[in-house]
């Protein structure tokens, strides 16, 4: 089994917040919390696949919140992840139309580990839709846009990854991809607004 370095909560937050390599901190989250969080899902009508999907969403939400300084540190990382896991799963169950009286009662009785956790994750549907839009851009556009905006690579380095003649062509392609993304995005103004709100975790 791959062993990730052990981190304290503070170290973990610092590394995830720095925006640099996330591999080791995320592996640490998997090794430390995957079993317990997935057991909750599996004990509450979820399958193993559900547990894996939800865990990825939990990690995504957590890192996103840390990077946007929305994790206030009023609870431990563990407590916070539990709260996010529970809320995401209960929302998922509601969405599936499986209203579990017991779980709803539990949800009401358990106070959120951090204020507004439920609100923070309530727009995940909008986020999913936007991810689908990005998926629809095609492989080349995704590669260029992610390399530039997510990995923060310079155009010269992106050129080495693609079969283009020069940097200018890459720049033009990037601009076209961004334009295309905006057009797809603007086609549904309500979605755009919801997504903006979801990304900013508006409370």
């Amino acid at each position: 089994m791959a062993v990730a370095p052990e981190y304290s909560d503070d170290e973990l937050l610092r590394l995830l917040g720095s925006g640099k390599a996330i591999d080791n901190p995320v592996k640490h989250l998997y090794e430390k919390y995957f079993y317990v969080l997935s057991s909750y899902i599996e004990q509450n009508q979820g399958s193993r696949e559900d547990a894996e999907d939800i865990f990825q969403e939990v990690v995504l939400t957590f890192i996103d919140l840390v990077r946007k300084n929305k994790f206030r540190g009023e609870s431990s990382v563990k407590t916070f992840l539990f709260a996010v896991n529970r809320n995401i799963w209960l929302n998922e169950l509601k969405k599936r139309g499986r209203q579990l009286k017991r779980n709803e009662k539990f949800s009401v009785e358990q106070p959120d580990a951090e204020p507004g956790v439920e609100k923070m994750i309530s727009n995940r549907e909008a986020r999913k839709q936007v991810f689908n839009i990005i998926e629809s851009l095609g492989e080349v556009c995704k590669k260029i846009l992610l390399a530039f905006y997510y990995e923060n690579l310079p155009i010269s380095e992106i050129l080495t990854r693609l079969d283009y003649q020069n940097e200018q062509v890459v720049r033009n392609k990037k601009a076209k991809c961004m334009k295309s993304l905006e057009e797809k995005f603007s086609a549904d103004p309500a979605l755009a607004q919801k997504f903006k709100s979801a990304l900013q975790y508006d409370e």
Partner: peptide, 17 residues
Amino acid sequence: PENNETLVDALKAYGLK
């Protein structure tokens, strides 16, 4: 684009995913 900031956020979230 006007929504550039939101789009960049979307790309960053997608990249993270």
